[in-house]
Amino acid sequence: MLIELADNDAVQMLASGLEPLRGAELAEIVPGHETLLVVWNSKLPPLQRVEEIVGGAYAVAEAIEAPSEVTLAVRYDGPDLAAVAEICGVSAEQVVARHLAAQYRVGFIGFAPGFAYLLGGDPALQPPRLAEPRTRVPAGALAIAGPYSAVYPRSSPGGWNLVGSCEEPIFDVERTPPALLTPGTRVRLVAQ
């Protein structure tokens, strides 16, 4: 079942409120940008029961502690920094200053394990994806595309603008949870 919500804050709130039902009733709780995918363990219950569960989840979410915050040390040494500055009509120094100043939150994960879509970026920094994706983007690349920022968890093909790098391991299967940036996590960037 895909639940449409007003914005990503509402998605995070409902996701955290449904978390206690994981296992017993719910198999997967997957945030999207403005949707929450809920996969039931067995058959979809009647709509009235779904409404009860969702209603109850909001009450649960309000009592939950504030989401975790992660600080990432980054360097603005990416090959697309100058191009992003030109597209956005600001100087490279301004790209760095504005990108560091924003307050980010992980909206959802997609593309690859641990690939966190960071929302909350400066509206002046929304370069489109590259016309030709790179066949290889290095692990730890700090990138921007449209309203999103992200750090590539591992080397992969990619079409985002590379503005910098981050040495912090973003995804490690030996860690619990393996993803450093989970949906709802607040993220602060600091210049290394």
């Binding site: 997967e28 997957v30 959802f108 593309f111 690859a112 394990p113 949870p177 993803a179």
Partner: peptide, 9 residues
């Protein structure tokens, strides 16, 4: 490995 979709797995 069900149950990790929100981490992109």
């Amino acid at each position: 490995r069900p149950g990790f979709a929100e981490l992109g797995i």
